[in-house]
Simulated scan of single mutants.
Amino acid sequence: MPQFDPASFVSQLFWFGVVFTLLYFVVVRPTLPKVGKVIEARETQVAGDLDRAEAAKGAADALREQHEAAMKAAREAAQAAVAQARESAAKASEAQLKALNSRLEADADAAATTLAAARAAARASLEATVADLTSEAVAKLAGIAITPADVSAALAQN
């Protein structure tokens, strides 16, 4: 390979230097100032954007503090309204409970009276049924004829 021949190193280095210098002055030299201007413009724009962002952050912080203060005031007002509503609901429920208790006591008294009458009627009916069934059972089992009145009299003695 000719590029690795040590005899041609000097000429290769010469042409490398010529081509590099030519490319430097033709391509890099005219574009370097333009790139520098673009970089400066970007730095200026970024600095302006950062300043505007700081100002916006300060405004946002002020708005957040105002919002938090308004939320705190609204929360306190809501808690006061809830406490007042609870108090009025407790008073109303207490009045309703008193009315309900008095009505329930009246209903319980009426139910107790009705229950006592029903028990008395049931006992009377039960005694008559027991007397009839007992007289029939004694007639079938022992073959003795007993009237229900006799059975009732016997049960009343015990």
Score class of each variant (00 low, 15 high):
1 M>F: 09
3 Q>L: 09
4 F>C: 04
5 D>H: 08
7 A>Y: 13
8 S>K: 13
9 F>H: 12
10 V>P: 10
13 L>R: 14
14 F>C: 06
17 G>L: 07
20 F>N: 09
21 T>Q: 06
21 T>R: 04
21 T>Y: 07
29 R>K: 05
29 R>G: 00
31 T>P: 00
31 T>A: 02
36 G>R: 11
40 E>I: 02
42 R>N: 05
43 E>N: 03
44 T>Y: 08
44 T>P: 00
45 Q>G: 01
47 A>N: 02
48 G>Q: 09
49 D>P: 00
51 D>Q: 10
51 D>V: 05
51 D>N: 08
52 R>Y: 07
53 A>Q: 08
55 A>P: 04
55 A>R: 12
56 A>C: 01
58 G>V: 02
60 A>S: 05
67 H>T: 00
71 M>T: 02
73 A>V: 00
75 R>D: 04
79 Q>G: 00
83 A>L: 07
88 S>I: 11
91 K>H: 14
92 A>H: 09
97 L>S: 07
100 L>C: 08
100 L>P: 06
103 R>A: 12
107 D>M: 10
112 A>E: 15
114 T>W: 15
118 A>V: 04
120 A>H: 12
120 A>C: 03
122 A>W: 14
124 A>I: 04
124 A>H: 12
127 E>F: 03
133 L>I: 11
134 T>D: 06
138 V>H: 08
139 A>H: 15
140 K>F: 15
144 I>A: 06
145 A>H: 14
147 T>R: 10
148 P>F: 09
150 D>V: 15
150 D>A: 10
157 Q>Y: 13
